[in-house]
Design a protein around this nucleic acid. Structure first.
Length: 206
DNA sequence: CGAATGATCGGCT
DNA sequence: GCCGATCATTCGA
């Protein structure tokens, strides 16, 4: 099963779960770093108001979201953070999966150098802005084809899909304006993995 | 500890 | 002008 065929699915919510456990590697500035994807979030335009392309709004920025599956969508947030998404679905369907956290597995020292912060531990890559900086992803990488040979960023699916009980779904945040869409449990992460951005267990004890 | 705040850019209204 | 799919630091108790 090729990555291309997986990503072209219109079921972006399932895709977000399939991508958990996949490997992302980058070779940027002569440095190669890689990590396992531990947390993702699905954005399903046009009905998803949390997506930039909700209502199929096409602008210069969102144009990338309408590209073919396997295209990268790098978006600058708060003027500082580069958020890395994988465009999925057929062409002209603006689905995307936001990578929210990874577990570093190659070039960890280089990641710390890129991050250049004092704190340590899991704060290396347990957030969307953090992992992009650690991997060296910038807006210059917007719109590139992740499936091509020469791509500086590559995705490799894990050999075995995670069992559903190893995946935790939770509501998305930061999109309060999206009203009804805000509570859709489209954020997924690997259970018991410390390299995720949320508290490990959000079990609501009644 | 938790809460508040500054950083800083591009696209939208 | 303003706001955002954020983060690191500072401030206060």
């Amino acid at each position: 099963m090729s990555l291309q065929k997986v990503l072209v699915s219109e079921d972006v919510v399932s895709l977000a779960q399939i991508l958990l456990g996949a490997t992302i590697s980058t070779t940027i500035g002569g440095i190669t770093t890689a990590g396992i994807i531990t947390e993702t979030e699905a954005y399903k335009a046009p009905e998803d108001k949390g997506s930039h392309a909700h209502g199929n709004k096409r602008t210069k920025r969102t144009e990338t979201l309408f590209a073919e599956a396997g295209t990268s969508y790098v978006y600058l947030c708060y003027g500082i953070h580069h958020l890395f998404n994988i465009v999925t679905g057929p062409k002209d369907v603006a689905h995307a999966v936001l990578i929210r956290a990874i577990e570093p597995c190659l070039g960890k020292d280089d990641m710390w150098t890129r991050r250049s912060i004092k704190s340590k531990g899991h704060s290396l890559t347990n957030g969307p802005g953090k992992l992009s900086q650690a991997l060296g992803i910038k807006t210059a990488h917007n719109g590139i084809n992740l499936l091509s040979d020469g791509s500086p960023i590559k995705i490799t699916l894990s050999e075995r899909q995670l069992a559903s009980k190893e995946i935790i779904a939770s509501p998305r945040v930061g999109i309060a304006y999206a009203k009804e869409c805000a509570h859709w449990p489209w954020r997924f992460r690997i259970k018991d993995n410390p390299w995720t951005s949320l508290p490990h267990e959000v079990s609501y004890e009644s």
